[in-house]
Design a protein around this nucleic acid. Structure first.
Lengths: 248, 248
DNA sequence: GGGTGAGTTTGACGTGGATCAATGGAGCCC
DNA sequence: GGGCTCCATTGATCCACGTCAAACTCACCC
């Protein structure tokens, strides 16, 4: 009900086609054969544009579809009654959103665009239907869900067992690796999120994030200029995680 | 390969049947109709006993099956190269284990029995096969995976945004609720895990867990005697989470 | 061009939880 | 029944990160 209001003029009704999409290698179709991918075209009905700061969905919205990001960046977060917010993930091109909704048939978190973005809308009932026929789709979908679970465990490790600088190092290396997978530079990129959002994701205050950035810069590991990041010494960042407290 | 070694004499080869199982309401079959559940019996081939402290699977083991807990308790954890351990969950009767393995076809965490336990072994290839035919199974399986994702987000909230006592309160209330769902007392139960394991799960040191228990007891919210817990004032525990810092 | 506001950086200080250390059970085995 | 081992509790101290506050940067707009 509220959903409509969040996509005022921006909803687009363009027919999309996985078989024509250059995100094949990153997105749901990965690992499927040509025939299977052609059948996917039945599935992905429409695209939807979401402007920066707008919600793709909100906690509580009825669950109807999952989304594949074509262009842009999102964050997902959960909010406690008292207003405390926890960012649960940052999603980029080729990644999936909305899997949390299957369990209760309502979304359990918010998904907000960090920049003007566009997603493919995958009607969930159709996805189930088609994945009963197309083995490759079924398998790939299960992998996507499982990967999300594994990712979440990684975040738990980060939040539960690592110190501030280790968390940020892990975060930067993770971003770098995801950019690489998309053919972008591993060493130089723009952050789409604020220090506050990074902090929420990493279980830190924004000041702590900022200080860690500065420290990394002083130590020659990175160059920071606002949201622009250059990774100068990825190996040193990796070591930081493996050998938590430098020399102790 | 290593797997075999971890189930020495305990592996049982008893034919099990979901349709005869009293965990119907809690386990994978939940929400399926009678006909569908009968077909499930094809799926759950064997049971396996796992003694306390033994691994059901280890990170790196090839993924072949998921597991439904019939009897007992498990923990799952991930371990960093430097030995730091993060408990990612505690699983009890009727809950699923092994979903993390689908994504890479190898398990990404360890599953260890906290007491002598027994699981139903669900061969994954058969599960995919059958869930292409049985709509209710497919849907239910997706819900189980999605529920795990939602649960993980809750843990992230806990680790990223809550203080020590809030984390422990949330943990106790969660246990209480899961016991209730199984027909056990909501107010009185035995913990199967040590303070250290609770601490790992909650991102705290064991001393902090112990102190929080003591404080809850002093405040009349619970009665603790080693692993035996009685919840005396669940409402006060809930309030603790909703109104984080008492009077501020 | 200067005013406004959101986001970031940096400093000074406070504190929640970690660390270190000692003591106290409970279960188990000989 | 006494000693061993594992776990839990409690106290004293420390420190990583949070909090509070001020200044700085950049974008945007009138």
């Amino acid at each position: 009900m509220q959903m409509k209001a969040t996509v005022p003029i921006t909803a687009a009704d363009i027919k999309s086609a996985c078989s024509q999409c250059n995100l094949l290698e990153l997105c749901l179709p990965f690992g499927m054969n040509e025939h299977e991918i052609n059948r996917l075209d039945e599935l992905v009905g429409t695209r939807r544009k979401v402007k920066r700061q707008q919600h793709l969905y909100r906690a509580g919205d009825p669950f109807e579809a999952i989304y594949a990001i074509r262009i842009g960046w999102f964050k997902t977060d959960v909010v406690l009654e008292d207003g405390r917010e926890q960012v649960t993930g940052f999603q980029m091109t080729g990644e999936m959103l909305g899997l949390d909704g299957i369990s209760t048939e309502a979304h359990s978190c918010n998904a907000v665009a960090l920049e003007d973005s566009e997603v493919c809308v995958i009607a969930y009932d159709k996805l189930e239907e088609l994945s009963r026929e197309v083995e490759g789709l079924q398998h790939q979908f299960h992998k996507v869900m499982s990967r999300e679970i594994v990712r979440d465990h990684g975040v738990m490790m980060l939040l539960g067992s690592m110190r501030a600088e280790e968390r940020l190092a892990a975060f930067l290396l993770n971003l770098s690796q995801r950019f690489t997978a998309r053919g972008f530079s591993a060493a130089e990129f723009h952050l789409r999120m604020t220090r506050d959002e990074i902090g929420s994701y990493l279980g830190l205050k924004l000041e702590t994030v900022s200080r860690a950035f500065s420290r990394f810069q002083d130590d020659g590991m990175i160059a920071v200029q606002q949201k622009h990041i250059r990774i100068l010494d990825p190996e040193k960042l990796r070591k930081l995680i493996q050998h938590p407290v430098a020399v102790r």
